[in-house]
């Protein structure tokens, strides 16, 4: 029986090499392409003939778009709507990858269970946040890391020295936490997806091994099967929630870049 980690194995479908680098079409890239195709169908059908009174497909697209726009309105403010297409793309891509990976029997692969993919997406968010921050505020963007509110050069010399020292300390901590954001963002999604799929696989293995118990066949496999059914429902929830969390954190980071504090 395959181990629980084997489902994350990258398999080459079409070997490919460009400039000495291996860029083969793998099962991961294949399922990313499937996600892209699914999203394209969803969006192109939903926006084929936009009407004031929407069709079902259009209403579905509008619902998701409105969800992203509201999230940006709440977390970034009126400036945030400009970034709605980007956050929407990230959200729907992560969501599609997460959900597609849960389809049983057809040998699906979850690209978001690979840290390379999630880190890549997180790095994109990080780069966008830095770009927006420096484009809007220039070097003033670094004031994001300085404690806000208390003017430094006020009070006695001792107070000023203390405030300066404390400010530098806080600045370093904030800066490090800022730099760690892409990693926490990427690892959170990767860990959630991986853990869920491992759990499903482990209980699936239990179904087989307990169900093939000689004296009473099938009977003992029912309990882990029930657990697996419940876990599948939970995994669907986690797939949606993690896509939401990823998009939410991306918009919160964008808020820092747009509005500083």
């Amino acid at each position: 029986m395959p181990g629980p980690m084997e489902q994350f194995e990258i398999k080459k479908i079409v070997p490919l090499e460009v400039a000495g680098y291996d860029v083969s079409l793998t099962n991961s890239s294949f399922w990313m392409l499937v996600a892209l195709a699914g999203i394209s169908i969803f969006l192109f059908i939903g926006t084929a003939r936009p009407q004031l009174v929407p069709t079902r497909a259009q209403a579905a697209v509008e619902y998701l778009y409105d969800f992203v726009r509201k999230m940006l309105d709440e977390n970034v403010g009126p400036e945030g709507r400009r970034y709605a297409p980007l956050i929407f793309s990230i959200f729907i891509f992560v969501l599609a990858c997460n959900l597609l990976g849960l389809i049983p029997w057809v040998g699906t692969f979850t690209p978001t269970s690979h840290i390379s993919v999630t880190l890549g997406l997180a790095a994109l968010v990080f780069v966008v946040v830095c770009f927006v921050g420096f484009a809007r505020h220039g070097l003033h963007f670094f004031s994001l890391f300085w404690p806000k509110g208390d003017p430094v050069f006020q009070g006695s010399p001792i107070a000023i020295t203390m405030k300066l020292l404390l400010g530098i300390f806080v600045f370093l901590i904030e800066f490090l936490s800022f730099l760690s954001r892409p990693f926490t963002l990427g690892i959170r999604l990767f860990a959630n997806m991986t853990a869920g799929h491992v759990l499903l696989k482990v209980f699936g293995t239990f179904v087989v091994s307990l169900g093939s118990f000689g004296a009473l066949p099938y009977v003992f496999g029912i309990l882990p099967l029930g657990v697996n059914i419940a876990l599948s429902a939970l995994e669907v929830l986690i797939a949606v929630v993690q896509a939401y969390v990823f998009a939410l954190l991306a918009s919160l980071y964008l808020n820092d870049a747009v509005n500083l504090h």
Binding site: Y21, V23, S24, T26, M32, H114, V117, G120
Partner: peptide, 13 residues
């Protein structure tokens, strides 16, 4: 694992 996935991710995204 890293380069093929990130390359495809970049293109697809």
């Amino acid at each position: 694992v890293f380069i093929p996935q990130v390359a495809w991710l970049a293109i697809i995204f």
